[in-house]
Design a protein around this nucleic acid. Structure first.
Lengths: 129, 129, 129, 129
DNA sequence: GTGGTCTAGACCACT
DNA sequence: GTGGTCTAGACCACA
């Protein structure tokens, strides 16, 4: 399986994001081994070093840990950590920026409110089911 | 005055954004001259070529026009054009992404609704005054 | 009991150090048997080969000896040998490096002297008792 | 000029140390440009990527900053930061370990005291001159 | 000119 | 088997 890489971002960062998402969705659980550098390199048709760089970055963010000679493993708190960080980023940075942008552009607020409320409805339904 | 440039984006794009914002806020009106390349280069401690590149990019977006020997001037429709484009970008791309992100992260929606409504209040007051 | 391995050093060297320390402190006496490879492997959650490698390294330094079918045993002169070597290493290499580092960093010498003197006091008391 | 690399440590770390030392000794002052990746690569007969890795690591430690298209520059507080960190490392980690080691090995403390005091004398003389 | 990224292929130490 | 490192050579965006 090759893959359609986004040209505007380094591949290694895109690989990192892929793994992050897999952790966030629970596809990769705490303690699970990351696929090996070589394996991913072969699968996605990339250079092992590129994969390695991504894996390293994940280790530096304390999301995975290296076990010498065995591979890299998802840290126990990885998912919680990740969720916490991303939520924080959203609430402290992205959302305020969005509000600022809405104001600057003079966007109609009503439709935005509507779509947000629709989203809430959906989420509530999910919980019930 | 130097400036704190964001390392992750080309300086010329950051310069472009600065001007765009000044147009959006009305700080630069239709027909106003952009500050000269040299002046900006000196002011922001930046290579003149970099400033030039930013000015060019603005011209390519039809926001400013060159007048030979006189400099660059904000186009008459600049603000409207910009608002239109950016509003579109926001509604078609950024806002849907934000909604997606809210859902993925499982962010509480209530507080977001509250802040949006607060924003609407402010905007309404502004219009009255 | 698992263990927190230092990622920057091979596990087998860390195991070796553990045993060396036990010999130096007298916890492992001349003639004592080293715990079996399997046992240690199970205890520390480590590959038996890794333990074996550590035991081999100890044998190569003449600190333990293999007895076929019986296991590995601490050599009679192990402690003396170890002390001699390590003292030498300390006096010839580590201490000079420490002095050099103190000078390079411009560390205050007084407190270091104080702590050394305090250490001497303690050691003297130990001898008397 | 080639160089005698230590085989036991990655070259990029050794390069990093070289720069750190140059900052500590004042050979590289705040605001100075680091020699370019290519230049160093040619000078020391190493791969540009290896140098790059070292420079990156320095940037991540906030000792140098990247200026897009211009190169890497020593941060204003680099020297102070470095001294602080290293002194801290020494006082909190290395020195206690040394004391521990002295005690474990039963090294004679008198000579150590003597050499430390001699060092103090030298340092004092340096200050006077 | 600068740094950033990638490839292809290699060697190493560790488990 | 694992990751870590390096080489040699290449292309890109940026200033």
């Amino acid at each position: 399986m090759s893959f359609q890489w986004n040209d505007k971002q380094p591949i290694y960062l895109q690989l990192k994001e892929l793994v992050k998402n897999r952790i966030l969705t629970g596809d990769l659980q705490a303690g699970d081994a990351l696929p090996s550098v070589r394996q991913v390199a072969a699968e996605y048709q990339v250079n092992p070093i590129t994969v390695s760089k991504a894996w390293q970055a994940l280790a530096e963010e304390n999301l995975v840990e290296k076990k010498r000679g065995l591979g890299m493993f998802v840290m126990p708190q990885a998912r919680r950590l990740l969720e916490q960080r991303e939520k924080n980023l959203f609430l402290e940075v992205e959302w305020p920026q969005t509000l600022q942008r809405i104001q600057n552009l003079g966007v109609e607020i009503e439709p935005l409110l509507d779509s947000l409320q629709a989203l809430r409805q959906n989420t509530d339904l999910d919980k019930e089911s």
